[in-house]
Structure formats: C-alpha cells, structure tokens
C-alpha cells in the first residue's frame, strides 16, 4: 500500500510540475503538450485511485477519459490551425460541381 501511495504522490507532483509549464509555457504548443500530458496522467491516476480504494469500476471512467483526452488534443490543434471546427481535414478527391464558391 505504501508503494502505491508513492506512485499516487508521484503522479500528483508531476501534475503540479506540468501545471507550472502550462501557465509559464511560452508558446501555444507548450501549453497543448502540457494539457495532453496532464490528461494521460489523470487517466493513470483514476485507475490507480480505483485500485487503492478497492473499486476497480474506476477503470471504465479512465478508459472514457483516455478517449476524450485524445479528441480534446486534436480539437484544440485543429481550432488553432484553421480557427474553426467546421473545416474537413480530409480533402474531397473530386470537387463538387456548381457548388464551388
């Protein structure tokens, strides 16, 4: 149990360190990197806390959070590249006729 506490405290400390980078980070991409990394750590922390409390049901929440974390990163990057969520990332192979601007 003490070893598990060491792991949990380690994850907490690293989240704190990454939050410093999140607030200091000179560029946008540093911040996105910090957010993504914090997300990964929270996934692991959820599973670990579930084990420490003897309730492994937390694993479902961790799995869901892993999915959401990935989509969040891609959505942030897409928004700051195109300034919109509406643009399709895959270009259509054939241009639709008559509807072009």
């Amino acid at each position: 149990m003490t070893l598990l506490s060491v792991a949990a405290v380690g994850i907490f400390v690293s989240i704190a360190l990454l939050l410093i980078r999140l607030f200091v980070g000179p560029s946008l991409y540093d911040r996105v990197l910090a957010v993504n990394s914090v997300g990964t750590k929270i996934v692991v922390l959820l599973a670990l806390v579930g084990f420490m409390m003897g309730r492994p049901d937390f694993l479902d929440i961790a799995l869901l959070y892993a999915l959401i974390n990935f989509v969040t990163t891609i959505a942030i990057l897409k928004f700051f590249r195109y300034r919109s969520f509406q643009i399709s990332l895959i270009k259509p192979e054939v241009e639709p006729k008559g509807e072009a601007e």
């Binding site: 060491v6 380690g10 990197l33 910090a34 692991v44």
Partner: peptide
C-alpha cells in the same frame, strides 16, 4: 506495487524534464 512505484517516479522525472528542457 513496485512496478507502480517505478512508474510514479518516472512520471516525476519526465515532468521535471518538461520543465527543464530549453525548447518545445
């Protein structure tokens, strides 16, 4: 538990690296 502790320590090291390294 030992593997968990190793993982926790290595996340701290990685976070320290994110703070220390000079560019993105």
């Amino acid at each position: 538990a030992l593997l968990c502790a190793i993982g926790g320590v290595s996340t701290v090291i990685a976070a320290a690296g994110v703070l220390r390294f000079p560019d993105f």
